[in-house]
Amino acid sequence: MGFKLLSKLLVYLTASIMAIASPLAFSVDSSGEYPTVSEIPVGEVRLYQIADGVWSHIATQSFDGAVYPSNGLIVRDGDELLLIDTAWGAKNTAALLAEIEKQIGLPVTRAVSTHFHDDRVGGVDVLRAAGVATYASPSTRRLAEVEGNEIPTHSLEGLSSSGDAVRFGPVELFYPGAAHSTDNLIVYVPSASVLYGGCAIYELSRTSAGNVADADLAEWPTSIERIQQHYPEAQFVIPGHGLPGGLDLLKHTTNVVKAHTNRSVVE
């Protein structure tokens, strides 16, 4: 069995187990497998329904001669939608809004960016022009300005110390501490036991640490421990890039980060 097929099978099995364990909360999309990078042309966006009122959005972007996937989250909030992270750029984010209108038909009224990198804030200006209120932590807003990236308009308070959590509509926002970046936030959907790890969490097929220019490698494993301790009931975990899975993604990420750190020390 090929690795790609095995990865998709694991996603399907995880979703099936969740649907059985929580039949009222989960209505997993039966329309197909989780979209992969090879299936999404740059400039297009796919939506994948995880649970009743919960979707991931998947886009792709060219970077350094390669094409990478990027995940975000959409959560229903009454007759409105909360968006977590842009679709990595203005063109993708405009396509995301169009796809949401086509498939869901509810307005996106608020959006949260989970850290300051372009795959999370690139497209904020498109959201703002569409009347979406954009939010991020003060740290993310400051770092985005320093980096020359787009800056969300509103500040999220109460997320300055490791372990801080605040309720934001249908989700809980959690600051686990520094990891992929010093400002990275985690998003949890309690009604569906869905954990969105953003770039602080890796997919299972990833074996290298990737972009760690703004990471705190020493603190990252401790931050992941905080996530595990705060959300032990999480059933569906979405990484910032690639295929979702279960809580095993947290341990896998820790292993990859520690291996990278150990290699760096040896070198």
Results as ranks from 00 to 15, higher is better:
Tyr34Ala: 15
Gly177Leu: 04
Gln229Asp: 14
Glu150Val: 03
His180Pro: 02
Tyr175Phe: 09
Val124Gln: 02
Leu73Ile: 07
Ala94Pro: 04
Glu225Ser: 11
Asp29Pro: 08
His154Ser: 11
His260Cys: 09
Gly78Arg: 09
Tyr12Lys: 15
Arg110Tyr: 15
Gly123Leu: 04
Leu13Tyr: 15
Gly72Asp: 05
Ala218Ile: 14
Ala130Tyr: 13
Glu39Thr: 12
Thr261Lys: 09
Glu267Leu: 09
Asp29Tyr: 07
His115Ala: 00
Ser139Asp: 13
Ser113His: 13
Ile100Gln: 03
Ile224Lys: 03
Ser208Lys: 10
Ala178Pro: 13
Trp88Thr: 00
Asn149Gln: 14
Pro221Val: 10
Leu5Thr: 14
Thr36Ala: 14
Ser162Asn: 09
Pro69Trp: 15
Ala21Gly: 14
Glu44Trp: 08
Thr182Val: 11
Gly245Gln: 02
Glu44Gly: 15
Pro190Phe: 09
Asp119Lys: 01
Leu173Pro: 07
Trp55Val: 02
Val266Pro: 11
Tyr34Trp: 15
Ala209Gln: 08
Tyr12Arg: 09
His180Cys: 01
Val28Pro: 08
Asp29Ser: 08
Gly131His: 09
Ile17Asp: 05
Asp64His: 07
Ser205Thr: 09
Leu143Val: 05
Ala87Met: 00
Val146Cys: 07
Pro170Lys: 07
Ala209Phe: 07
Leu82Ala: 04
Arg226Ala: 08
Asp214Ile: 05
Ser38Phe: 09
Asp118Gln: 07
Ala209Gly: 07
Gly246Asn: 14
Lys4Gln: 05
Val187Trp: 01
Val212Phe: 06
Ile58Asp: 02
Thr153Leu: 11
Ile227Thr: 08
Asp118Tyr: 05
Gly105His: 15
Ile227Tyr: 01
Lys102Met: 14
Ala66Phe: 15
Asp119Trp: 01
Val257Asn: 08
Tyr188Asp: 03
Pro41Glu: 13
Ala15Arg: 07
Ser191Met: 11
Glu150Gly: 04
Thr60Lys: 08
Gln103Trp: 12
Val126Trp: 08
Ile50His: 08
Leu156Trp: 02
Tyr34His: 12
Arg46Lys: 09
Ile227Trp: 03
Phe3Ala: 06
Gly197Asn: 04
Gln235Glu: 13
Phe26Ser: 14
Asn255Trp: 12
Val256Trp: 02
Glu101Lys: 13
Ala94Gly: 11
Thr222His: 14
Ala130Leu: 08
Arg128Gly: 10
Gly123Trp: 04
Phe174Gln: 02
Asp119Ile: 01
Val237Ile: 07
Asp216Thr: 10
Ser70Pro: 04
Ile100Asp: 01
Leu217Tyr: 02
Tyr231Gln: 01
Ile238Tyr: 03
Leu173Lys: 03
Thr86Pro: 01
Asn211Arg: 07
Lys102Glu: 12
Pro239Gln: 02
Gly122Lys: 07
Leu159Cys: 04
Leu195Cys: 01
Thr140Ser: 07
Leu127Tyr: 04
Gly2Ile: 05
Ala87Gly: 04
Ala165Glu: 13
Ile224Gly: 01
Asp29Cys: 05
Glu44Lys: 11
Gly122Ile: 05
Gly2Tyr: 14
Gly53Asn: 11
Ser62Asp: 07
Thr93Leu: 01
Gly177Thr: 01
Gln235Phe: 08
Ala200Val: 07
Gly163Leu: 07
Trp55His: 02
Ile186Trp: 02
Glu157Val: 12
Glu157Pro: 12
Gly246Val: 04
Arg110Gln: 14
Tyr68Val: 15
Asp79His: 09
Leu156Gly: 02
